[in-house]
């Protein structure tokens, strides 16, 4: 059966143990987590969790129902295929020997990202975009040598009607 990528976003009670409940459910029921992002919302009592997962249609139906069943999950939405803004941020530490520096900067320019730290032999590049943009950038920087990378995982919001 075909698995597809789903972006789930949920509002949860901002309490200790709530993340463990959500993540534990994925673990216990054999669902996978591709990325996970958690932070407080405007209301300090409430956090937003965004999870990217892969599942079959039937599998997804169960995941959504099981998550909704958790007492601390206030609201949940599957943003897949709907009008949602999806973004991810990455910090990429790329080797920047003198002979590559110009090339790195050119790529950074093309992708409209930023250099946020400079050393003798490295740059740290900050990039924001959708998953496709990030992969494209990583592919181009790879030949220079990526020392370290930190990605936030996808966050998403439903687009309000215009």
């Amino acid at each position: 059966m075909d698995q597809t990528r789903h972006v789930l976003t949920m509002l949860v009670d901002n309490q200790p143990g709530v993340l463990a409940r959500v993540v534990g459910l994925f673990g216990a029921r054999g669902y996978n987590i591709e990325s996970l992002c958690v932070a407080e919302t405007i209301d300090s009592q409430v956090s937003r969790i965004t999870i990217v997962t892969r599942a079959t249609e039937a599998g997804m139906e169960q995941i959504v129902k099981q998550l909704r069943k958790l007492i601390n999950v206030i609201k949940l939405r599957d943003l897949t295929g709907s009008k949602a803004v999806q973004r991810e941020m990455a910090l990429i530490c790329v080797r920047a020997k003198p002979e590559y520096r110009a090339e790195v900067l050119r790529i950074v320019d093309i992708f409209r990202c930023k250099v946020v730290d400079v050393g003798l032999e490295h740059y740290i590049v900050e990039v924001t975009g959708d998953a496709a943009k990030l992969s494209a950038l990583i592919k181009l920087l790879m030949p220079m040598g990526i020392k370290k990378i930190a990605r936030t995982g996808t966050i998403a919001l439903f687009r309000e009607p215009k």
């Binding site: 143990g17 463990a20 216990a28």
Partner: peptide, 14 residues
Amino acid sequence: IVGITRPCTKHNYL
């Protein structure tokens, strides 16, 4: 015990 019983309770509290 809250951690241990999380997957086998309907809900639990500390």
